[in-house]
């Protein structure tokens, strides 16, 4: 009995000590709740009546999670939304677990989630029952671009030289990316190779999670690293890799980034954008959609979020509900035809 008591005291001690360091953030929450009550009353339009939950259909620390957490942070700090915003991780199956969870929230006006290209690709690969058609696109906020990088002493100096070699023998070049075949890293490369006339069914693609991609290109195991621009910029600055092309329409801003040529200027008429935005469940109240659309517009225009974008190397890309929906439909058709050609369509 005494020992048990000692144990309890020990646990409580821990709790007290740990609680102490977090008091500051708890106070923040308390203040938010106060202001929320005031602003809620003098608003005739559709207004939030409870706290919002944003689902990141991935684990902590990834792109979806950071987007959700940083957006929630800015929305709260800039008092754009006065309700509590909770970020929930629904990790698994490349997003499918999170989407299935969101499908259950049909009709809710307080559940949002973050997604990007995988919400088009994963259903096409047959690994999710739900695609973007099953949700309400609210607003896109961010764009990332892809890059194709090779070791600095590689024999290719531009994309055309690489594709010339690949036209002769597609099997002589190994492409490495982080994700599985049929997903983003693979498809973005295939799109450009196709535009250049390479036989895309024979492209050799290796999937290397845990940052294996950059390692494999640095040690010469693989030839081309297909990834996001941010992943390679620092290696280029240190003169370890060179970028053959970025997937954006125009050159990107930034000391190092602006030195990367686009595929377009090399005569390959193709672009690829890894967009990222917010969705709501099916049958969300149109008034609520409009409300969130405006809030995300404000978020996207805010200086605080511009700083977040700059830190992560994200680009601004705002699309409202209607435009977003149309963009997604077109993009899906496009991806579908590529996957079909690769034999990866389920």
């Amino acid at each position: 009995m005494k020992k048990l008591l000692a144990l309890l005291i020990f646990v409580l001690m821990f709790l007290a000590a740990c609680g102490g360091e977090n008091t500051s953030s708890n106070n923040d929450n308390a203040n938010d709740e106060d202001t929320e009550e005031n602003s809620g009353e003098d608003n005739d339009e559709w207004a939030l009546s409870e706290s919002i939950e944003i689902v990141a259909p991935a684990g902590a620390g990834g792109g979806w999670d950071t987007t959700a957490r940083m957006s929630a942070q800015v929305l709260t700090e800039e008092s754009l939304i006065d309700q509590d915003i909770g970020v929930v991780n629904k990790e698994g199956a490349g997003g499918a677990i999170g989407w299935a969870y969101m499908a259950e929230q049909e009709g809710s006006n307080h559940n949002l989630f973050v997604s990007s290209s995988p919400i088009l690709l994963v259903p096409l690969n047959g690994q999710s029952e739900y695609g973007h058609e099953d949700f309400t696109p609210i607003a896109n906020v961010i764009a990332d671009y892809g890059a194709f990088a090779v070791a600095k002493d590689a024999k290719w100096d531009n994309l055309n030289e690489l594709f010339e070699d690949m036209k002769e023998d597609p099997q002589s070049v190994t492409i490495v990316g982080t994700s599985a075949p049929g997903s983003m890293d693979h498809i973005q490369f295939v799109r450009f190779a196709k535009a250049a006339g390479v036989d895309i069914t024979k492209i050799k693609y290796v999937s290397a999670p845990d940052a294996g991609g950059v390692t494999q290109v640095l040690n010469g195991s693989a030839d081309v690293f297909s990834t996001g621009v941010a992943e390679v910029a620092e290696q280029v600055r240190a003169d370890k890799l060179k970028v053959l092309a970025v997937t954006s329409e125009e050159r990107l801003d930034g000391e190092v980034l602006s030195t990367f040529p686009t595929a377009k200027e090399q005569g390959i008429d193709e672009t690829f954008v890894n967009w990222r935005g917010f969705f709501g469940p099916k049958d969300m109240d149109p008034a609520a959609v409009e409300y969130y659309e405006n809030k995300f517009k404000e978020l996207s225009d805010s200086e605080a979020f511009a700083e977040v974008r700059a830190n992560y190397g994200w680009n601004e890309m705002y699309m409202g509900n209607e435009e977003y929906k149309q963009f997604l439909d077109e993009e899906k058709e496009n991806l579908k035809s590529i996957l079909e050609e690769l034999g990866l369509l389920e």
């Binding site: 698994g92 199956a93 499918a96 999710s128 599985a180």
Partner: peptide, 20 residues
């Protein structure tokens, strides 16, 4: 789970929970 080299789901018995 999903085989990273081909993207095929293996031995998942159609369950999403086993894809990873």
């Amino acid at each position: 789970g999903i085989d990273p080299q081909t993207g095929t789901g293996r031995f998942t018995f159609g369950s999403m929970n086993l894809l990873d």
